[in-house]
């Protein structure tokens, strides 16, 4: 077609409209599945941390650093603690964490649902062996290098101080929020 202003504008506009319509349609098709997958991932991570419990989302507006908070109730109806979802800024992008806290305010477990750190260094934070050292800790966590000397020490990943700090900070924030929530006796 000729390069007249009318032709240029109308062709580009029609192409844009057609592409937008296609995108709207695909979004309509996939929207629910994508939301379900995200929710299922969170549920699976929580079920992994605190087994045999049901999770119910609670109001977390009192804790601005927390994305979502879920109250865990064991199958026998007892208070099984809380799970906190939050993001902490890492070396490359936000790290999304789910932290489970038992009713006695000790950490039940930590899972990472989204991480985009340097492969081979920061990405080691998602190693279950590294994350497991948070289990059972309570109070104020202390990030150390090399080796653990006190009960609340968390050993950083060598070469990935920023990532280790981000995860530890995130866990601490979750722990504080959960302790406050549980302590309130709600």
């Amino acid at each position: 077609m000729k390069n007249t202003p009318v032709a240029m504008i109308s062709v580009l506009a029609i192409i844009c409209l057609a592409v937008s319509a296609l995108l709207g349609f695909v979004n309509f098709l996939t929207e629910d599945t994508i939301a379900e997958i995200a929710e299922a991932k969170v549920q699976a991570a929580m079920a992994d941390i605190i087994p045999n419990a049901t999770f119910e989302q609670v109001d977390a507006t009192a804790y601005p650093a927390v994305t979502k908070m879920y109250k865990a109730t064991s199958t026998s109806g007892e208070n099984a603690g809380v799970c906190v979802q939050l993001s902490s800024s890492g070396f490359a992008a936000d790290i999304v964490l789910i932290v489970g806290i038992n009713a006695d305010k000790t950490i039940a477990g930590v899972r990472i649902t989204s991480i985009n750190e340097t492969a081979g260094l920061g990405s080691k934070a998602n190693d279950p062996a590294w994350l497991s050292q948070f289990e059972g800790l309570t109070g104020t966590l202390n990030l150390v290098k090399n080796s653990k000397t006190a009960d609340n020490d968390v050993v950083a990943i060598s070469g990935a101080t920023v990532t280790s700090t981000a995860v530890t900070k995130g866990v601490q924030t979750a722990l504080d929020a959960a302790a406050d929530y549980l302590g309130g006796g709600k």
Binding site: K2, T4, I15, V19, L23
Partner: peptide, 20 residues
């Protein structure tokens, strides 16, 4: 596609498919 706006048209088409 008029030749003067071809790159813009290509990018819209490509971006559309990538988002899909």
């Amino acid at each position: 596609i008029p030749s003067k706006v071809r790159i813009a048209c290509y990018i819209v088409v490509i971006a559309g498919f990538v988002t899909v």
